[in-house]
């Protein structure tokens, strides 16, 4: 039995990285990132994309010479 355990221990080190020994699930309720990161991604990315894209639309209007607010203002 001793020998068997040793064999397995060797397999564990060569295959499953040792830091996971004895863990019954990978995340075990512990999150690698902080909640703040979660809020930044979930809310921040949405807001950032909205701002970024709105800005691009503004730039396009301004520089493409098309209609919209810019041409109205300069008439």
């Amino acid at each position: 039995m001793e020998a068997a355990i040793n064999t397995v221990r060797q397999l564990v080190t060569s295959n499953q990285p040792s830091e996971y020994a004895g863990m019954s699930s990978f995340f075990e309720g512990e999150a690698p990132l902080s909640q703040a990161v979660g809020y930044i991604v979930v809310l921040g990315f949405g807001a950032a994309f909205s701002i970024f894209t709105t800005l691009l639309v503004y730039l396009e209007r301004k520089h493409s010479g098309g209609g919209g607010i810019t041409s109205e203002q300069f008439k």
């Binding site: 979930v42 809310l43 949405g46 807001a47 909205s50 701002i51 894209t53 691009l56 639309v57």
Partner: peptide, 18 residues
């Protein structure tokens, strides 16, 4: 909310870039 905001504010050209 991210999707709603993005879809509403982004618009046609913006969703294209996005």
């Amino acid at each position: 909310w991210g999707v709603i905001l993005y879809t509403a504010a982004g618009g046609l050209k913006a969703t294209f870039i996005a």
